[in-house]
Amino acid sequence: MLIPALKISVEKLSSSYYRALFKLLEPPRIEPKPLQFINIWIPGLDEVPMSISDYTAGDYTLSIIFKVVGDGTRGLRDRNGFFGVKGFLGNGIVTSGYDRVLFVAGGSGIAPLPFLSRKCVENGCIVDVVWGVRRGDMLFNIGKYAVGLGEVYYATEDCTIGYCGKASSLVRRIVERSGFKWSLVISVGPNQMLREVCYTFRSLQNSYVSLETMVKCGLGACGSCLLKPLPKLLCLDGPVFKCSEVYHILG
């Protein structure tokens, strides 16, 4: 179903990221789950997959956090008026039953954190965050959009803010220093980072990654999002997988 959506605002968060807020003009059939995604239609221009950054059930507002990489995302930033939301797509994750969650993000992998944190708070769990980016000027205050966070660690490869290096190395250091204290680990970012975080938590049962790949139809027909050589489609079987299911195709 294509849900009509009106763009309410767009703001620049940092040197690289934007946040756009939409109001859905028709109620969706079901509520989204954290880490589900949408395909957002930019009328007459493109349709692009986007992680749901936040969603409010009461007034049907939905936000996305994104980087401008082409015509479609440029349209998301610059155009006003009506868009279309196809979704909610993919499997997502249910956070109930966990007390403390570690969310590891690389770059724009931070996008789904606000909604994840909101659902976590509803279920009485706390989210600790490790967020790594290439340059310090790409960071923004994620605490402004996420709720009830525990500890928040930043890593920059240009060594300007927080830990000097990659998010996955920072995660390893934190674990070495204070051990495992999470019942659930979720990582979103480049495959190499996912692989390294999965390795660090290889003894943990509930260690998940959210993958990215090209998505065209989003409904399981075209097969563009096949996770070769696995017989799995990102849009239906994912984007969230257990580390053990996909470890050998990462990086």
Partner: peptide, 12 residues
């Protein structure tokens, strides 16, 4: 290559 998205929509 086929067409650019949107290539498939579910109708109400």
């Amino acid at each position: 290559e086929g067409y650019p998205p949107p290539i498939l929509i579910e109708l109400d």
